Structure formats: C-alpha cells, structure tokens
Amino acid sequence: MWDIVDSNLQDGDQAKGAVAVDAFPGLGKTTAVLVFAAEFHRREIAEHGAFTAQGHERWPVCRVGLTGNTGMKDLNRAMLEFFGHPGRQTSTAAQLGLQALDCVLSCEVRLLILDDLHFLKWRRTSGIEVSSHLKWIANEFPVTLLKVGVGLADKGLFSEGEAIGETALAQTGRRTTRLDMPPFTIAAEQGRQQWRRLLLALEQRIVLADAYPGMLADDLSDYLFARSTGHIGSLMTLVNRGCQRAQRAGAERLTRELLDQVRNDEAAEGARRELDCAFSAGKATSRPRGVRTTG
C-alpha cells in the first residue's frame, strides 16, 4: 500500500491507481487498513503541519463506510458527514459531489478509504452509478482510493466479462490493484514461523499477573491454531475472552483448560475438530523446527 499511495502522490493531476483489499471475513482487513491510515495521517501531519497554507485543518485521510443500499448521493453525503459539512442534508447529488471535492481540496485529503464495498450490487443500476462515480472521484479528486471488502472479484468489481455493465466496470479493473490477506497456514515452515511471530507479539500485549514468556507461542501454539483455524479475527476473539475469564476466575494466565471453557465464533468452532485430530495424531504442527520439542 505504501508503494501505491506514495507513487500516486507524484502523479500530479493524473488519474491515480486505486487499491482494493479483498479477503474473507475475520482476517483483519479493516484493522490493517486503519493502522496504515493512521501511520499515513501521522506522517503527513509531521511533514506538512496540522494546517494547510490556507488555514484549514489538514485531514490526509477520509474514511467512509458503505451500506447495502448506498447510491451516488449517499456516498457523497457520507463523505460530507466525515467533514461535518452543514450542507450535507439539503443539497442535490451533484451539489454534494462538488461540496465533497471542495472539502477534499481544502483539507488536502490524500487517501479516501471506502469500507465494506462488498455491500454494493455492482451489476445493478445503483452499483453501476457508484462505479462511474468512483471513476469521477479518481479523475477529479487528488486522492488514492483504498477499497475494502469481501469477495470483490466475485461480485464484479474487476469484471470485464459480458455481463451488464461491462464497459463501466472494465476501467475499474484496469485502475485497481488487488491485495489479499490470506489466513495463516502451517503447511510450510515459513507459515509456521509467521504464526509463531504473531503469538510472540500477542504475548507482549496480554496483561495478566501470571503471564509468562512462551505462554502462547510455546504452550498453546497448536491449540490456538486449531481453535482459530489461522484466522486472526477468531484468534483475537478467543484470547480476549480467555483473558476476561482468567481475570474473573483469578487464574491470571491462559491455559488449555481455561480456554476450553470459552466459546469462539461459530465458523472457528465448526472447523476445529479436523485440526484437533491432526495435531493429536502428530500429522500437523504449528511450531517451527527449532521449537518443536518445547511446550
């Protein structure tokens, strides 16, 4: 994302390439994008100051969440809601678009995030209208569009086939770079090392009186992978609920016995049994080679 956004900053008045973060639920898409947005915001403020040359507040990032019935007017109004514009309730769709452009220019926005883009029905009339509107934004707004959603390719965001809206959607596919976020896997050594690094980093954020180094990465590595199936959203849910139970019960540490009392999300619980059997039979492991004898 840094490569794409920073290269777009050099393009001047040229149409800028967009980014689409497209992955299954529970893999941390929105979290990763918001972390990137916060770092980008802080960098721009540090380099250029909190106010523009005209005295307006500098807002390098604008984030908009979409709904299932978002149309062109709704999208423009959502952008104005972000800036608190007084005309967001009474203007026409065209006026809202121009007002949004004025806010973007005045506040020197450089990154426009559109979250939950999968809610749009791309092959319906409203979806085609919004797709065309996004191309207008890409042409007229000095911003990089960062789109976040689930199954965007399957829903037709990048489609150039023979379905309705072929011409309208083809340009979107050419201008958009798709980035995915796969779940953690343990089939290869690299994946096992990544999983261990995640658990080690997570250990640093746990505040329990009897927590100790290796509590997750050594003693619970296989167990946590089986309970989360490699999805960071399921992992964080399990660890967070486990910490709450550990505090209430006075255990002050995470153990297999304590986490067995914690229910996780339905998708993770449904896929748990097969992984449990593989780990128990020694047919799979989440530990890298150098630490397989620990725990």
Rank of each mutant, 00 (worst) to 15 (best):
T167S: 14
Q95M: 12
L75M: 04
K135P: 11
E57K: 15
H118N: 11
K135M: 04
P60V: 04
N76S: 09
A50V: 12
A100S: 07
G149S: 04
L134R: 09
A100R: 05
P142H: 01
T125L: 02
I113F: 00
R123P: 14
L105Y: 14
L145C: 06
V61R: 00
G161E: 06
L117H: 02
A93C: 08
D102E: 13
D115L: 04
T92Q: 09
L101W: 08
G151Y: 00
I137D: 02
F141E: 04
G161D: 13
E140Q: 10
A138M: 15
P142W: 06
R63F: 09
A168L: 13
T92K: 07
N76Q: 04
E129T: 05
R58V: 01
H85D: 14
K147Y: 06
A138K: 10
N139Y: 03
L152F: 01
W59L: 10
A94N: 14
R110E: 03
Q89H: 15
G68V: 10
M79Y: 11
V109E: 12
L66R: 06
T70P: 06
S131N: 10
S126T: 07
T92H: 05
L96R: 12
W136I: 09
L98A: 07
D115M: 02
E108D: 04
K147A: 08
V61L: 14
V130T: 08
L114A: 06
A153I: 00
V148W: 02
I113A: 10
L157W: 13
G65E: 11
Q95E: 12
Q54A: 15
L111S: 03
L66V: 05
S131M: 13
G149E: 01
R124E: 15
G68I: 10
S159E: 15
G84K: 08
L66S: 01
T90C: 09
L152R: 00
T92L: 02
T125D: 13
V109G: 11
G87P: 07
A100P: 02
R77I: 05
R88M: 05
E160C: 09
P60E: 05
G151P: 00
Q99S: 12
A93H: 03
A94Q: 12
L145G: 01
E160K: 06
P60M: 06
L117K: 02
E140W: 07
N139W: 08
I113P: 11
V109N: 07
I128F: 10
P142G: 01
F82W: 04
G151K: 08
H85M: 04
V64D: 03
G71I: 11
P86A: 03
L112N: 03
K147S: 03
H85W: 06
A93M: 11
G97E: 02
I128L: 15
G84A: 08
M72Q: 09
G156D: 10
C62W: 09
G68A: 11
A163Q: 14
T52M: 13
P86T: 06
T52V: 13
G84E: 08
E129F: 06
L101S: 07
V64P: 11
